[in-house]
Simulated scan of single mutants.
Amino acid sequence: MLVLLPPSETKAHGGDGPPLDLDALSFPELNPIRRKLADALVELAADVPASLAALGLSERQRAEVERNALLHSSPTIPALLRYTGVLYDALGASTFTGVERERARRRLAVASALFGVVRAGDPIPAYRLSGNSTMPGLGSLRPLWRPALEPLLADISADELVVDLRSGVYANLARVPEATTVRVVTEDSSGRRKTVSHHNKAHKGRLAAALATCATEPTRTEDVVAVARAAGLDCEQTGKTSVEIVTRS
Rank of each mutant, 00 (worst) to 15 (best):
A202H: 14
Q237D: 07
A215L: 13
P147Y: 11
A38I: 00
L211G: 05
V224K: 03
P147D: 03
S190H: 14
I124M: 12
P177D: 08
G131A: 11
A50S: 11
V243C: 07
L81N: 12
R206G: 12
N68P: 01
L81A: 12
T216N: 13
K201C: 02
F27A: 07
R229C: 12
R101E: 11
V48T: 13
V86P: 05
A24L: 03
F27N: 12
H13G: 12
L153F: 07
L2E: 13
S140Y: 02
E102F: 11
D89N: 15
S8F: 03
A158G: 03
L57E: 05
F96R: 03
A148I: 00
V246A: 02
A126V: 07
V176H: 06
R67N: 14
P19Y: 05
V224I: 09
P32H: 08
V225P: 06
R107H: 10
L114I: 08
A53M: 13
R183L: 11
F115A: 07
H199E: 11
G191C: 10
L57Y: 12
R229D: 08
P147H: 13
R128C: 03
D159F: 00
S112W: 10
L30F: 10
R62G: 02
S189N: 11
I245H: 09
D159I: 00
G98E: 15
I33K: 15
E160T: 13
A50F: 05
V117K: 09
I33Y: 14
A209E: 01
G239I: 04
D164V: 00
R101C: 10
M135A: 06
N68M: 05
G239L: 01
A228G: 15
L41M: 11
L80D: 09
G92M: 01
V185I: 11
I156M: 06
A40N: 09
R67L: 09
M1P: 10
K11D: 04
T238S: 11
D155F: 00
V182L: 13
P19T: 06
L207A: 08
A109V: 03
E64Q: 13
A210K: 01
S197A: 12
H203M: 15
V196H: 07
P136R: 00
R101Y: 05
A111S: 14
L108D: 01
P218V: 00
D155C: 02
H72Q: 14
L22P: 06
S94D: 15
I245K: 06
E102C: 05
S130Y: 10
L81P: 00
R60G: 13
E178A: 15
R67K: 14
L141K: 02
L141N: 06
A63P: 01
P123T: 04
E222H: 13
V225T: 02
S94T: 11
P7F: 02
A212K: 13
I77R: 15
R183P: 04
A179Y: 02
F27R: 13
H199V: 00
V169H: 09
S8P: 10
F96I: 04
V118M: 05
D23G: 12
G205M: 07
K204T: 01
T247A: 12
R193H: 07
E59S: 15
G56P: 06
A154Q: 13
P125M: 08
G137S: 11
L141F: 09
A210L: 06
L211V: 08
N200W: 09
G239A: 14
A38K: 07
R248D: 04
A24N: 09
A226Y: 10
